[in-house]
Simulated scan of single mutants.
Amino acid sequence: MTTPTTVTGERADILALLQRHRGFLKHTVRGLTDEQAKRTPTASALSLGGLIKHVSATENGWAAFATGGAEAMLAEPSDWVDGFRMVEGETLAGLLAEYEKVAARTDELAATLDLDASHPLPEAPWFEPGASWSVRRVLLHIIAETSQHAGHADIIRETIDGQKTMG
Score class of each variant (00 low, 15 high):
61 G>K: 05
81 V>T: 07
89 G>P: 01
71 E>K: 14
125 P>R: 11
75 A>S: 12
136 R>N: 02
128 E>F: 14
55 V>M: 13
92 L>Q: 06
68 G>F: 10
118 S>W: 00
109 L>E: 09
111 A>F: 02
85 R>I: 12
113 L>N: 13
99 Y>T: 02
128 E>I: 14
121 L>A: 09
141 H>K: 09
119 H>Q: 12
111 A>G: 10
65 F>L: 05
71 E>W: 07
133 W>T: 05
74 L>T: 03
130 G>C: 08
131 A>L: 10
128 E>K: 15
114 D>Y: 12
63 A>L: 07
101 K>H: 08
86 M>P: 04
124 A>H: 15
147 S>Y: 04
138 V>T: 12
111 A>M: 06
127 F>M: 10
140 L>N: 11
106 T>W: 06
83 G>I: 05
112 T>M: 06
79 D>H: 13
97 A>V: 07
139 L>D: 03
61 G>S: 12
96 L>T: 08
142 I>Y: 06
103 A>I: 00
69 G>R: 12
93 A>D: 12
48 L>N: 05
118 S>G: 10
50 G>V: 12
77 P>L: 06
82 D>G: 13
58 T>C: 15
114 D>A: 15
87 V>G: 14
99 Y>D: 13
94 G>R: 14
55 V>Q: 13
76 E>S: 03
111 A>R: 01
71 E>P: 01
76 E>K: 11
145 E>K: 02
126 W>T: 12
92 L>S: 01
136 R>W: 06
110 A>H: 01
73 M>C: 04
146 T>F: 04
92 L>T: 06
71 E>F: 00
79 D>C: 05
111 A>L: 07
94 G>F: 08
104 A>Q: 02
80 W>L: 07
73 M>A: 05
87 V>E: 10
89 G>W: 04
71 E>M: 08
59 E>M: 03
99 Y>G: 03
106 T>G: 04
96 L>Q: 15
121 L>N: 15
48 L>C: 06
43 A>F: 02
52 I>V: 14
123 E>C: 12
146 T>D: 09
90 E>F: 06
81 V>W: 00
74 L>C: 04
94 G>M: 04
105 R>C: 00
133 W>Y: 04
82 D>S: 10
94 G>T: 10
59 E>N: 01
85 R>V: 14
75 A>I: 06
139 L>N: 02
100 E>D: 15
75 A>W: 00
126 W>F: 14
141 H>F: 04
77 P>Y: 11
